[in-house]
Amino acid sequence: MILIWWYISDFFSFIFDTVSSIIGWIVSIIGLITSCVGFLGNLFLALPTIFKVSLIALVAVSVIYKLLGREGQD
């Protein structure tokens, strides 16, 4: 029976280690995505001031428009 127990424990150890490796890989992917987001931020900061202002206005207006909802007022 001890042999069977060992094999069962080996199986779950294998599952645990595999999941750990997958989690580590997912973390590295998240790091990649984070660096891409950081790049977008740098790209925004690198734009001429005039376009930064325009983009901020675009986001602000879009958010305000979505929150207030012109149809909601109707």
Binding site: D10, F11, S13, F14, D17, S21, W25, S35
Partner: peptide, 28 residues
């Protein structure tokens, strides 16, 4: 342990992938 070799392969595989992602992130 019937999983020992497989586990080694799995760990090697994902470690390689993590390393590749890191290299790719740096080049990117």
């Amino acid at each position: 342990n019937p999983f020992s070799d497989i586990l080694t392969d799995v760990k090697t595989f994902f470690n390689d992938q993590i390393s590749d992602v890191g290299d790719f992130k740096n080049s990117l």
